[in-house]
Every structure is written in structure tokens, then in C-alpha cells.
């Protein structure tokens, strides 16, 4: 608990997390407002439509998570941390946990804010959370963001430089996975198991939250896992990456 409090003080006593949180909320709320108010002709206003922009918010949260680690390396406070807490695994695990919790909170606020705005804008449409799929589509954003943050923390520990780590995280998240599909023959099979594609499955399920038409604004995940297994798979991926990062950090000179 002490270590969690330490990381909480560290994270919240600088400004960048607050700005990132604000940016994540503004981007998702803004996009959701835009999408929901334009719903009607081409696509219906559905629960899934309100969460259209979650990936943008998640990208910002992952930047926050990466910075939480890389700025510590940049300013030498990682050394001060290891000096105060020689058990590096415990220190880094605490950091990952605190960042994940913050990401979870931002993710949930972001998701329910977008959904709430949708309800306000389109009271006549059915945006009630009636099914597990509906709930997962909104409430699932938080856990997915939290796990995405853990992946970003792990990348930050491995790369240590802000620019490098952020570009790697963002380029991978926003581009590399989709490009894998372009590989002939095996591309689609590999893509099916790519972590962020699987994470997308948690949110979208098989499209039940998109209403009767099943029409989604974003393509559905190609993962064949159930949403819960998808969440477990994504969590496993994050855990493995974090374990690799912590093992590396323990062996390395700080």
C-alpha cells in the first residue's frame, strides 16, 4: 500500500496526467457529440455509436502512461525511486498499478460521459444499457484502457525515452496492427490474435450493441474469442509484457 501511495503522489503531483486526462475526455466527448448528433440517415444512434471515439481517448491515456515512466528516466527520478525502494520489481509494479487505476477511472469517465451526452442529444433513441453487450461496450472501455496503460508503462520501462516510447506505442496501436492484415495469406490469421484487435472485441462484441441493424461505425474485431476471453487474453498480453520489462529493469543499471 505504501508503494501505491508513493506512486500516487508522484503521478498526481505533476501536471501532465491532468492535461492528458482532460485531453482524453475532450476528444472522446467531442467526437461522440459529433457522431451522435449526425446519426440518423446513414447510421442509427446506438450505444456503440456513442463509444465510436474510445480509441482516440485510449491513445491519449497510453501517452499519459508512457510519460509516467519515461519522464522519470528523463529527469533521473527513477534512480531516486530505486534508491528509496531497492526492490525494483515492487516499485515498478506499484507504478503500473497506479497508472492502470488512473487509466481505468479516466476510461470509465470518458465512456459514461460520451454515453450520457448521447442520451442528452438523442433522448428519443434507445441508448439504454439493456444487455451485457451494451454494458461491455460502455463499461468495458475502462478496463481496456487500464490494460492498454500497462502495455504503455511496460514499453516506457523498456525504451526509457519519451519520444521513442510514445511513437512506438502510438504507431503500433494506431497503424501496425491493421497493416498486418496486408500480409498475404497469413495476415488475417495473425491479425486475429493481435492484442489490440482482441481488445476491440471486448468493446464491440459481435456487434450486438449496435442495435437491430448491427451496423457499426468502426469495423468489428476479427477475433473469434468471446468478449470475456478477449479481455483475459489482452490482460495476459499486458502482464507478460510488464514481466519482461520489469525483468529487464532489474538486471539493468539504473
Amino acid at each position: 500500500m505504501t508503494l501505491l501511495a508513493v506512486e500516487r503522489i508522484k503521478l498526481l503531483s505533476t501536471r501532465s496526467p491532468w492535461w492528458c486526462a482532460l485531453a482524453a475526455l475532450l476528444i472522446t466527448a467531442g467526437f461522440s457529440t459529433l457522431v451522435v448528433s449526425n446519426a440518423g440517415g446513414g447510421f442509427p444512434a446506438t450505444v456503440s455509436a456513442t463509444q465510436f471515439a474510445y480509441t482516440f481517448g485510449m491513445a491519449v491515456i497510453m501517452v499519459l502512461a508512457t510519460l509516467a515512466v519515461t519522464t522519470e528516466y528523463r529527469f533521473g527520478t527513477m534512480r531516486t525511486t530505486f534508491q528509496a525502494i531497492p526492490n525494483r520489481a515492487a516499485a515498478l509494479l506499484a507504478k503500473a498499478t497506479v497508472v492502470a487505476l488512473v487509466a481505468l477511472v479516466i476510461g470509465e469517465v470518458m465512456a459514461f460521459l460520451s454515453w450520457g451526452l448521447g442520451n442528452l442529444l438523442r433522448p428519443e433513441d434507445d441508448l439504454a444499457l439493456n444487455s451485457t453487450a451494451d454494458w461491455l461496450n460502455v463499461a468495458g472501455v475502462g478496463p481496456v484502457c487500464a490494460l492498454g496503460a500497462v502495455i504503455a508503462v511496460a514499453t516506457g520501462i523498456l525504451i526509457r525515452h519519451s519520444a521513442g516510447a510514445i511513437s512506438l506505442v502510438l504507431i503500433y496501436f494506431l497503424a501496425v496492427e491493421s497493416l498486418v492484415q496486408a500480409i498475404p495469406t497469413v495476415g488475417a490469421d495473425i491479425y486475429e490474435w493481435m492484442p489490440f484487435n482482441v481488445a476491440h472485441k471486448v468493446i464491440t462484441g459481435d456487434g450486438e450493441s449496435a442495435g437491430a441493424s448491427g451496423e457499426m461505425l468502426t469495423p468489428l474485431s476479427t477475433s473469434t474469442l468471446s468478449p470475456w476471453w478477449a479481455l483475459a487474453y489482452f490482460a495476459g498480453f499486458a502482464a507478460v509484457l510488464l514481466a519482461v520489462a520489469i525483468t529487464t529493469a532489474r538486471k539493468r543499471d539504473a
Binding site: K10, S13, R15, S16, E72, F75, G76, T77, R79, T80
Partner: peptide, 11 residues
């Protein structure tokens, strides 16, 4: 070891 090992935006 280094006086600069402080986050500049932290009090």
C-alpha cells in the same frame, strides 16, 4: 548524487 534528479514540475 545529482541535484538535477528532481521532476522540474514537482514542488
Amino acid at each position: 548524487l545529482e541535484a538535477s534528479w528532481v521532476h522540474p514540475n514537482r514542488s
